[in-house]
């Protein structure tokens, strides 16, 4: 049976979602621990999330 591409895309989206979730969670923890560094953490978090998101979209469009 042939697995449709969309299933792979779904898997990648799950992975990307988990990854972004992990980044967000860790960032929250980091901000809670060091509220004065919130700005830097936020920036780093957004960049990391954006990079993972890029992979997710690439997968979606490749399928």
């Amino acid at each position: 049976m042939e697995i449709p591409g969309i299933v792979g895309a779904g898997l990648i989206v799950i992975g990307a979602g988990l990854g972004i979730g992990k980044i967000g969670g860790s960032a929250m923890e980091a901000i809670a621990r060091q509220p004065e560094a919130a700005n830097k953490i936020q920036t780093a978090m957004l960049i990391a999330a954006a990079l993972i998101e890029g992979i997710g979209f690439a997968a979606l469009f490749a399928s």
Binding site: A50, L51, G54, F57, A58, L60, F61
Partner: peptide, 10 residues
């Protein structure tokens, strides 16, 4: 830049 393009579009 490709990711940049896709991200905004998507």
């Amino acid at each position: 830049p490709f990711a940049l393009m896709i991200r905004l579009y998507a």
